[in-house]
């Protein structure tokens, strides 16, 4: 029995149809079949969030998401966030706040922040809520302080 299946999905707004090995995770299809290496494999078991992407606007760990589940879905990865050479608001906030060191965790963090800020635009957000909404993402470099600032800035871009 062949392990290959046909799936159709939209990736960063572009429709694609692929023959994929059904044993692969979405992360493996993104990185190996599509060459989109923004999402990273850290732990491979749902602990670190380095592989975070949005599936129909829902934040998931793509390392523990079967690629065949992406059939007929809209996938967003870090590669699609900048539009016409301009960084997204969240990306810009991470740059401005120096929230990036080695950068391994950054694509996953930015997708987590993007998902979070889409749900809470304009509302008053506590630091605790920011921490909880990013609890599925680990960073070994920054000590999180600048990431917190970047998330805050993504919610209130005018606040200095």
């Amino acid at each position: 029995m062949t392990t290959f299946r046909e799936i159709t999905f939209s990736i960063n707004g572009r429709p694609r149809t692929l023959y994929i090995d059904m044993r692969k995770s979405l992360l493996e299809v993104l990185r190996q079949d599509l060459g989109l290496t923004g999402a990273k494999q850290g732990c491979g078991v749902g602990e670190c969030g380095a592989c975070s992407v949005l599936v129909d606007e829902v934040l998931v760990d793509s390392c523990i998401y079967l690629a065949i589940w992406a059939d007929n879905k809209n996938i967003r990865t870090i590669e699609g966030e900048a539009k016409n050479g301009k960084l997204s608001r969240v990306q810009q906030a991470y740059v401005d706040e120096g929230a990036v060191q080695c950068g391994f965790c950054t694509p996953g963090f930015i997708m987590a922040t993007t998902s979070f800020t889409q749900k809470c635009t304009g509302e008053k957000i506590t630091e605790d809520e920011i921490r909880k909404s990013h609890a599925g993402n680990l960073c070994r470099c920054t000590g999180y302080q600048n990431i917190l600032k970047a998330v805050e800035k993504s919610i209130h871009p005018d606040k200095e």
Binding site: G46, S52, V58, L59, V60, D61, S115, F116, A135, G136
Partner: peptide, 9 residues
Amino acid sequence: IGGPQIRNI
């Protein structure tokens, strides 16, 4: 339970 990514799925 877990973090947002886990609770979403």
